[in-house]
Nucleic acid binder design. Structure first.
Lengths: 230, 230
DNA sequence: CACTGTGAATCCTTTCACAGCC
DNA sequence: GGCTGTGAAAGGATTCACAGTG
C-alpha cells in the first residue's frame, strides 16, 4: 500500500463500527480505545493508530463519544451514501445472501438478481424478479449498478465477473472459490488492464478456503493466531 | 507470528492447491512458480517463498509436477485426514453451506446439524436430522467433532460459540458478524483463556464486512489493492 | 539453460513511549 | 489524572538477486 493505510486497518474499522452500533443500541454514550480494543480483540495502540489514519475523533483524557465516532466511521467507510447492488447467481447461497437480515443496513439496496437457471428466472426473491444474465447489459443502461455479488458455481464465476465488469460495476464481492482474472490486453510495455476493469475492486468471501485454513491451524497450533479474517 | 510463517501464506497455499486441482482436471502435468503466480495474482517470488516454508517440492530448471505438488499441499494443509464438522444454525445460510457442492471435498464430513428453531428441529437437511442445540453436549460424547461452523444470527453467536468450545471443537468457522470472545478467567498474571478455549482457532467469513470494505475501496481507488481475501 | 530455493535487503505494519490536551 | 494522537523503534512480510542444480 503506497499511501500508508494498511488494508487490515479497513477490516478493523468495520469491526469498530459494529461495536459502536452495539454500544449505541445499549445506550452507552462513551467509549475508549481500551474498551474498543478489548471488544475487537486487538490492542489499544492499534485502535488509536487505525483511527488516526482518518482523523482525530476523540477527546484526550475523555475517550470517544459513541455517536460521534460511529458517524465518522460511517462517513470514512462510505456507508452514508447509496449503493446499488446486483446479485449474480440466485441458488441457495445467492438467496441466503439476498435474504440476510442485516444486509440492507445502511444504504445498500439490491436492485437486480440474475441467473442462468430457467427454473429460477421469473421467480420472486426478496421482492425482485430473477432475470437472465443476458439481460444484465440492458439493465445496466437503465439502472446504476455499484457492486455485484457473485454467487455462481466456480466454473461460471470468471465469465460472470466479466459480465459484471462489462456492466460497469465498481466492485465485486466474490463468493466463488476462484481467483478472478481481470481481462488484460497486451501493450508494448507489458500487459495492461482492459478499460472495463480499471478501478474495479474485488473482495473474496470464500468459506471453503476458510475451512481449509482452519484445518491447517488446528494441526499447527504452535503458529496459531487466535483469530483471522480471511 | 513468532515462528516465521505468515498467515497470509496459508491463504495463498489454499489458492495454489485450487489451481493445481484445476490443472490436474485439465491433465496438465507440469507447472512453474511463474504459471502459479499468474493464476493466483501474486508474484513468482511469493509462490516460491510460500512453498519453501514447507519443503522443496520442485526441480530446479524444471518446475513442479502437478500431482506431486498437489499431494504435498494437501498434506501440509491437513486435507488428507478426516474432519468431522457440525453446523450450528440451519437457517438459509446454514443450509446453503451444508448443501454447497464442493464442501465435502477431501475428508470433511458433516456429522451433525443444530439449531434452536422448533420448525427446523427434526427436519432432514442433506441427510442429517436437525437437532436442538441442547443435544450438542450429549452428541459430542458419542461423536468426535473437529470443527463447528457457526451460522446463527449475531445475537446468538457468542453463546453458540461457547457451546462449540464446551463440546471440545478445535476450530470454529464463524459466519456471524461479530468478534467471538473466548471466555477468560482471571489469574494474578492477568486474564487467561479458559481451558475449553485453549488451542481453539477461529476463522471469520463475514460477507457484511466484505461489502463494507468494498464500499471503502470503491470510494478510495487510490489505495486500491486489486484483490483482498478478508 | 531454465527455473527453483534462499539469505539479504526493502518495505510495510504494528508496537511503543510519550507529548499534548481536556 | 487520564486518555488520545503520533513520531520513532521494532517486528514481520515481501521482494530481490543470485547461488544451486537437474
Amino acid at each position: 500500500m503506497t499511501s500508508g493505510i494498511p488494508t487490515a486497518a479497513i477490516s478493523r474499522l468495520v469491526t469498530y463500527l459494529r461495536i459502536l452500533e452495539h454500544l449505541e443500541a445499549e445506550n452507552v454514550s462513551r467509549t475508549s480505545s481500551n474498551d474498543l480494543a478489548e471488544r475487537a480483540s486487538v490492542t489499544a495502540f492499534q485502535v488509536r493508530k487505525d483511527l488516526a489514519y482518518f482523523g482525530r475523533f476523540g477527546t484526550r483524557g475523555m475517550g470517544y463519544t459513541v455517536p460521534v465516532l460511529k458517524r465518522e466511521l460511517v462517513r470514512v467507510l462510505g456507508l452514508n451514501q447509496t449503493w446499488n447492488v446486483v446479485i449474480v447467481g440466485v441458488g441457495r447461497l445467492g438467496q441466503a445472501i439476498a435474504n440476510y437480515p442485516a444486509a440492507s443496513d445502511y444504504q445498500f439496496t439490491y436492485v437486480g438478481l440474475f441467473d442462468v437457471n430457467p427454473d429460477l428466472i421469473g421467480q420472486e426473491v426478496r421482492g425482485l424478479t430473477v432475470q437472465h444474465i443476458s439481460e444484465l447489459p440492458a439493465f445496466a443502461r437503465t439502472t446504476r449498478i455499484d457492486m455485484g455479488f457473485l454467487a455462481v458455481p466456480p466454473d461460471r464465476a470468471q465469465d460472470a465477473a466479466q459480465s459484471l465488469a462489462d456492466a460497469g460495476v465498481r466492485g465485486i464481492l466474490n463468493f466463488a472459490p476462484i481467483v478472478i482474472q481481470p481481462r488484460t490486453h497486451d501493450t508494448d510495455a507489458g500487459p495492461d488492464l482492459s478499460p472495463e476493469w480499471r478501478g474495479v475492486t474485488i473482495e473474496n468471501v470464500d468459506f471453503l478456503a476458510g475451512m481449509k485454513r482452519l484445518a491447517f491451524y488446528i494441526l499447527n497450533p504452535h503458529l496459531q493466531h487466535i483469530q483471522t479474517e480471511e
